[in-house]
Nucleic acid binder design. Sequence first.
RNA 1: GGCGGCGUACCCAAGUGGCUAAGGGAGCAGUCUGCAAAACUGCGAUGCAGCGGUUCAAAUCCGCUCGCCGCCUCCA
Length: 478
Amino acid sequence: MPLLIYNSLTRQKQEFKPIKAGEVTMYVCGPTVYDLSHIGHARSAVAFDVVYRYLKYKGFRVKYTRNYTDIDDKIINRANKDGVAWNEISERYIKAFDEDMAALGVELPNFRPKATETIQEMIGVIQALIDKGFAYVLDGDVYYSVRKFNGYGKLSGKNIEELEAGARVEVDERKEDPLDFALWKKSKHGEPWWDSPWGRGRPGWHIECSAMSQKFLGETIDIHGGGKDLIFPHHENEIAQSEGATGKPFVRYWLHNGFVNIEKEKMSKSLGNILAIRDALNNYSFEAVRLFLISSHYRSPIDYSPDALREAEVALERYYRTLERMEKDWPDVVNAKVNEQRKKQRMQRIINAMDDDFNTAYAAGFIFEEVNTANRLMDSAKTLGTNELEEALPVIKAIFKEAGSFLGVFHRGPQEYFAEKKGNLKVSEEEIARLVLERSEAKKDKDFKKADAIRKELEEKGVLLEDTPKGTVWRMKI
RNA sequence: GGCGGCGUACCCAAGUGGCUAAGGGAGCAGUCUGCAAAACUGCGAUGCAGCGGUUCAAAUCCGCUCGCCGCCUCCA
């Protein structure tokens, strides 16, 4: 079964065929670094992280670029507000973004260029556009003449006349047409600037992605991704710039992720309903955040709520508890030789799901079916024997590992997952051990009242006790 | 106003023409347990916003209606 990808440009799922067989070039719009990243940025990053990982899993050599927009009005405004240099702001939030990505287990793209490191290339693209008649200079500014580009609107499905009619932008009277957008902005007093053939200035927003994707990936790239809100005008303008300058198709497959909503409304700065990535990670494991994000299709909107994250954490704990049980109770079985044919067969369901436009939610469903199978077989080992168990457990563990490699969830060891949770403990482990022992003594004496009191006391401190045949174990309450 | 998307059980969510409508969470009952917890088993949509149509067959295609959301302005 081929890999199908929904292409925003054609509005349908298409079989994915890269330009060069076996090799994929992929560009994703990164953040404008003027504030902490929120859960919406996490969604985009995780969605394309999964795309990147899965393409690699499929055997493609992937060249993946994600930029930082480190020069922009918002950065300058923030710097003025804070009374610091603009690049202090951008550097601070690049660092914060990198930390958040690492904390989310997002793999590093091959190239992570900053806009300000690519100014010369941008100037080159702008010059090419001027030379070809797509752009014009106006007193130190350079504008793109939208009407000169034939395919304008093909990605967003808009036509120029309607845009014209509905234009809400403040019109710069000097522009030849209200829809024309800035490629280069003459620097105002006190603003950062770079030298250019048109005088000192700084780049417009859209030009950077055209320049950077060309520099690192070439004139025509396979995949370009970003949030749905970037379709217009950002990506529309990128197409106009890149195709205008090179005369070649810019992108073969456009991918756009849906939003994270809060209370059914888009999370955004202007509405003030932001959840920062690091705030989410304070309360939940990064895998729970990822599981929450991949439990819906990447193009659908998802509604954030504390409950939704909690449910993801509960599900994840169920998963790790099962894996822990497999490894602790059946160490020899679980590490026995994998029946490759069986594995391939079970794994194929997950691969089919992923091949269908990265249906991670469906894929995750199969993981939980395996969880159920493992538990069921372990439960019934005493009565039904271990034949089936011996064949299934190694396969199940291998599936977890393999699917985890591209989902970025389910791929750690249980001890690591649970150890991370113990970091939030409010009671010392020594104290817990002491109370557990005290309770065991009480249980031995049939003093169940005392035993229950201790269990209740610990539960109030967020520690749950479980009596197993091998003794009492404890874990963190979610 | 223009363009686009969505509406599946108590909640989240997959499924977009054809086996018993995945999976997770919550609930109830049972097994296990001193009691719990965990795990397992069973129950739970004769039904996929509503109405009509196409078809041997529709949650899935078409039309209308209702409701929600997004883009058209910086935004992942």
